[in-house]
Simulated assay, not measured.
Amino acid sequence: MTANTRSGESPGDEGVRRPVSLDDEDALDAFVADADAALVEFYTDGCGICASMEPVLGNVARAVDVDVALVNPRDDPPLVERFDVRSVPLFVLFVDGEPVARRAEGFIPGDDLTAWVDEHVA
C-alpha cells in the first residue's frame, strides 16, 4: 500500500491538507477506513479536467476538514466495477468508511464541492 502526495510536500507542510495519491484498492480501503470523512477523486492520466481539480480539492480539504485522495482506477481495474466508474473525474464521498454520495459532472467549482461535502458530512 502506498499513499503519496501528488503535489509533493516539503518538511514545513505539517498540518497542511493536500490530496494524497493512492496506488490501488487496498490503499483506498485503508485511507477511507482511517478517516471520519474522505473525498476521493477517481481520475485518469491525461484528463485535463481531473488535473484542474487538484488545487480545488486541496482548498476543499482545508475548508471542510476532510481527507482527500486521488486514485487512478486504470491502475487497479476492479475499482472501475466496484465504484461504477463511467467517466472521470468521479468524486466519491466516504463517511465512516462507507460511500455516501458521488458526483461525475466534470469540473466542479470549489464552493459547490464544499457545499456538497458539507451537506453529506454534517
Score class of each variant (00 low, 15 high):
M1S: 14
A3S: 12
A3D: 04
T5A: 10
S7A: 13
S7N: 12
S7F: 13
S10D: 13
P11Q: 09
P11S: 08
G15A: 07
G15V: 07
G15F: 07
R18K: 15
V20H: 00
V20F: 01
S21Y: 01
S21I: 00
S21R: 10
L22P: 07
D23L: 07
D24S: 07
E25C: 07
D26K: 15
L28P: 00
L28H: 01
D29T: 05
A30M: 06
F31W: 01
F31S: 00
V32T: 02
V32G: 00
A33P: 02
D34R: 13
D34C: 02
D34G: 12
D34S: 15
A35H: 10
A35M: 09
A35N: 08
D36A: 12
A38V: 07
L39T: 09
V40P: 00
F42P: 02
F42S: 05
Y43E: 05
Y43A: 09
T44A: 09
T44N: 08
G46E: 09
C47S: 14
G48S: 14
G48L: 12
I49H: 05
C50N: 03
C50M: 03
A51Q: 03
E54T: 14
P55G: 05
P55M: 04
V56P: 06
V56E: 07
L57M: 15
G58N: 11
N59S: 15
N59P: 02
A61E: 00
A61H: 02
R62V: 03
R62F: 00
A63S: 13
A63W: 00
V64R: 13
V64L: 08
D65P: 04
D65Y: 05
D65T: 08
V66A: 00
D67T: 06
D67F: 00
D67Q: 15
V71C: 08
N72A: 09
N72L: 04
P77S: 02
P77G: 03
P77W: 04
P78W: 05
V80N: 02
R82Y: 00
F83I: 07
F83Q: 06
F83V: 06
D84E: 14
V85C: 07
R86A: 10
R86V: 11
R86N: 09
R86S: 12
S87R: 12
S87E: 09
F91Q: 05
F91T: 04
F91S: 04
F91M: 12
F91G: 02
V92H: 10
V92N: 08
F94Q: 04
D96C: 09
G97R: 03
P99W: 10
P99C: 11
P99N: 11
A101S: 09
A101I: 02
A101G: 01
A101C: 04
A101N: 02
R102E: 14
R103H: 11
R103E: 14
A104R: 04
E105L: 05
G106P: 02
F107L: 13
F107M: 10
I108Q: 05
I108V: 15
I108Y: 01
I108W: 00
P109E: 15
P109F: 10
D111M: 03
D111R: 12
D111P: 01
D111H: 08
D111N: 09
L113C: 06
A115F: 01
W116G: 12
V117K: 11
D118I: 01
D118F: 00
E119R: 15
E119S: 09
E119P: 08
